[in-house]
Computed example of a mutant assay.
Amino acid sequence: MDWSDLVTDIAADALGDSASKRLPKAAQAARAAQADALPGEQPVALTACRGKDDWAKGALLVTTHRLLYLKEGRPGVPVPLTGITHVELKSTRLSGMVLKVVALSGAHRWEGLEEAEEFTEKLRSAIRAAVSASAPTEPAPPAGEGGELLDQLERLAALHDSGALDDAEFAAAKKRLLQL
C-alpha cells in the first residue's frame, strides 16, 4: 500500500455504501494524513471502525511510524507506534470487534473493526518494526547519565509484557541497551 492507494481504499472499504457521497471528504482526510506524514512514513494497513463515541465510521490507519484515526471533518488522531505498550482485540455483542490500545499518550478504543484480526496482526508487526528501528545501535550511556537507560528498559519491558515484542526480540533489544 502507498499513499496513492489510500484514497481508493478509504472510499471503497472504510466508508461503505455511502462512499460516493463521502469520497471528497475521505480523499481530504487521506491527503491530510499524507501531508502530515513523517519523512519515510508509508501506510501499512487500513480498516473501518468507529471511535468510542462515534456513530459513523471512520478509518484506522497504521503507518510505519504511527496509528492514525481518520474521521471526516476532523484532524487525525496520531498514536506513535513506539509509544504503544498494549494492544488488545476483543469481540463483543454490542460493539463487534473492539481494539484497545494503551500508549504512553493515553488509552484509545475503536469499535466495529472490519478484518480485525488481520489488521491487529499488521499493527503488532508495525510496532515491532518501529521499536526495532528505534533501538539504539550504539552503546547506551551509563545509567548515571539522566536515567535514560532505565526509561528505555522500562519501555522495552512494557512492550514485551503487551506482546508487541516476543522473548527473542526483547532479549536482543535489552542486550543492545546494556552494552557499554
Results as ranks from 00 to 15, higher is better:
Asp13Thr: 14
Ala56Thr: 05
Ala37Val: 11
Ala14Glu: 09
Leu67Arg: 04
His108Trp: 15
Asp151Arg: 07
Ala30Thr: 05
Gly112Ile: 02
Val44Met: 11
Trp110Val: 03
Ala140Phe: 15
Ser125Gly: 04
Gly96Met: 06
Ala48Ile: 03
Leu23Asp: 08
Leu123Pro: 05
Glu114Arg: 02
Gly40Met: 12
Ala32Gln: 13
Thr64Ile: 00
Leu46Cys: 13
Leu67Asp: 02
Ala19Gln: 11
Arg74Ala: 08
Gln34Tyr: 09
Pro78Ile: 00
Ser162Cys: 10
Ala143Tyr: 07
Pro142Asp: 08
Glu111Gly: 00
Ala173Leu: 12
Leu89Lys: 05
Lys90Ser: 09
Leu15Met: 12
His108Val: 04
Phe119Ser: 00
Leu6Thr: 07
Ile10His: 01
Asp36Ala: 15
Lys174Arg: 11
Gly146Trp: 11
Ala56Ser: 11
Ser4Pro: 12
Thr82Ser: 03
Ala130Val: 07
Lys90Ala: 12
Ala143Leu: 04
Ala158Glu: 09
Thr120Ser: 12
Ala56Val: 01
Ser4Lys: 10
Lys175Thr: 12
Ser20Lys: 09
Ala135Trp: 03
Glu118Gln: 02
Pro142Val: 10
Arg22Val: 15
Leu153Met: 13
Leu123Cys: 02
Gly147Met: 09
Gln42His: 12
Lys175Phe: 03
Asp9Asn: 10
